[in-house]
Design a protein around this nucleic acid. Structure first.
Lengths: 168, 168
DNA sequence: TTGATTACCATGAATTCCCATGGCATCCCT
DNA sequence: AGGGATGCCATGGGAATTCATGGTAATCAA
């Protein structure tokens, strides 16, 4: 069962062809989230580059993608919500697979979108992970925007308080 | 099982004869959704150009078309709903096949319908995909119509929140 | 015959595949 | 504890293949 969540942060080189190594730990999660994965083969990944306001790529397993697709199919076909989701998760997304050497190829379009020159940051978010250009990542993650219910100066673990579910 | 969904977005040239390359990824989905497909042959596609309000072509696999036909057969024969569907999906549709070089030929009638000059956009929507003229696509997809429950400025992923199905 | 449609061939660019290397950590042997 | 030996990991380069696209010849329909 190895690892279930994408956890960790790491930096990787992006070469002229757009190839980037995926952190080894993430590859295992991808493999376990790919229904068609067989030992020795290469797991598939989904890369979502949709939303214009985002300056990172959202990556997930096939299982996670299928779950999203099922959710979308349950929404009213012509609703703006469903349309927005479909545009983002179906149209502006890419299904590809990890290569023999554990790398992912990011097409030029996607690299431009997030402004990657030659180095990328992989950030695990649990059920999915993000790819950032190193420069953007440093800037964007320095400043945390707060709203009325959020205090940037507070230790985040405070928000875990209360309503514990059963163990494990 | 290769790929199950039409996912991705890409631009392709349309020549004077109406020939357009179908994105390679889409061709694989078409092949797997064609019951009569045999290795090395050319998969079939269904192109629906019916509805006057649409300024794009809706394309799907044979399997998807069969599903729609079955649904229609279950509806009351003389109902306006069934008639409308039949007109769109049976009358104003075209079954054709991908050629040797991976292209599709769009007859002049269909090109005029969606106003294609010399470039088309292919947009994957999961179970099917759309063909747009580049110009229309840019315009139509820039403006997002909002209603009371829809905020165009919100990241679409918000609409995925809640009501989780059981874990698999 | 004439315009349109289909089949066949050609090519550059992009992408995928395959092989190679250096570094770091782990294991194992004595 | 030293010192290989082993193996995985990140990265690089070149070859081989696929893709998108163009052109020309053959076939068809009216």
């Amino acid at each position: 069962m190895s690892q279930q969540w994408f956890i960790g942060e790491s930096h990787h080189k992006v070469d002229t062809k757009g190839r980037v190594s995926i952190p080894a730990a993430f590859r295992k999660v991808l493999a376990s989230g790919d229904p068609d994965f067989s030992e020795g083969a290469n797991p598939q990944v989904v890369v979502v580059y949709g939303d214009a306001r985002r300056n990172y790529l959202e990556c997930m397993t096939i299982k996670a993608m299928n779950k999203i697709q099922r959710k979308m199919l349950k929404m009213p076909p012509a609703s703006p919500q469903r349309r927005a989701l479909q545009k983002m998760y179906s149209t502006q997304a890419l299904v590809t697979s990890v290569d023999e050497t554990g790398r992912l190829v990011l097409p030029a379009k996607l690299r431009n979108k997030i402004g990657i020159s030659n180095e990328a940051v992989f950030a695990g978010i649990g059920e999915n992970f993000q790819i950032w250009s190193t420069e953007t990542y440093e800037i964007e993650n320095g400043l945390v925007t707060g709203d009325d219910d959020f205090d940037p100066d507070l230790d985040p673990s405070h928000y875990l308080f209360g309503d514990d579910e059963d163990e494990e």
